[in-house]
Amino acid sequence: MWNLLQFELFKIFKKPRTYIAFGAIAAIILLIQIALLTNGKEYVKFMLSSLDDTLDIPYDQIRNGYWIGFAILNLLLIHVPILVALVAGDMVAGEANMGTLRLLITKPISRTNLLLTKFFACVIYTFILVVWTAFLCLVVSVLLFGTNDLVISKEFELLQIEKTDVLWRYIAAFGFGTVGLIVVASLSFLLSVLSDNSIGPIVATVAIIIVFTIMSEMQIPIYDKTVKPYLFTTHMLGWKGFFYIDSDVDGQTIKGSIQHFSSIMKSFAILIGYIFLFVSSAIIIFKKKDILS
């Protein structure tokens, strides 16, 4: 198992495609950072324009490393899942297409082990991608823009988190985000098992994520109670929950608090359920699959 995992990771990191993901994330983040370095104030103004008449908004202070990190994460909502799909969708289908799958299957490894190991390799890749994203979007932003309190714009409210209360939220959010991305990886992985070329599963995963995200975000009553609670994209946003600081009756935020911790945990459980569903379906299908590639 360990040998196979080494092999799978070696393959992932020997493939040029893998580095497209790391390169793409670096490019997107650095471009956003450069843009915000020069025009950040306008962007904050755009977000908070409705308050400009009432309040003196310290734009320069708001545009700090923490805020930029959060802004970047919002802009990457669709990108990172695509990059995860790029590798996960290739894991089985790519080998089928290349013809190496049949050689792998004739090795003394059970199909279940083979698939679990491949999936685990995807998980490791996803984790490394998240660490890379975290480094660029948080560490680099903080180095470039410094730290201050984090102001979060929600649809109906504005939350301010003291700067000493921010870092743990980021760590928790990245942890949660990793789980969300693993759902994407497992979906892509399942589709990969069903296909003999990697384009199909990658495109299908991306399409599903886009459609689901739109459905999650549209506020249409017929979806709100019926479909939305079951879409994994709704729950993938749970990482944001760590930034929704709670407040007392007076409206003063409480350091170290979270508004809807139980909702986050519920989302977490649902995401784990999805991972389990997708991976076990992949295994069941793969075990019975005739390898004709």
């Binding site: 092999f7 070696f10 290349m98 013809g99 190496t100 049949r102």
Partner: peptide, 18 residues
């Protein structure tokens, strides 16, 4: 069919291992 993006040595090495 072998892994095109790996060398002959790497292919042999990993197939032997697994």
């Amino acid at each position: 069919d072998l892994y095109k993006y790996l060398t002959a040595f790497q292919n042999l090495f990993f197939f032997a291992k697994i």
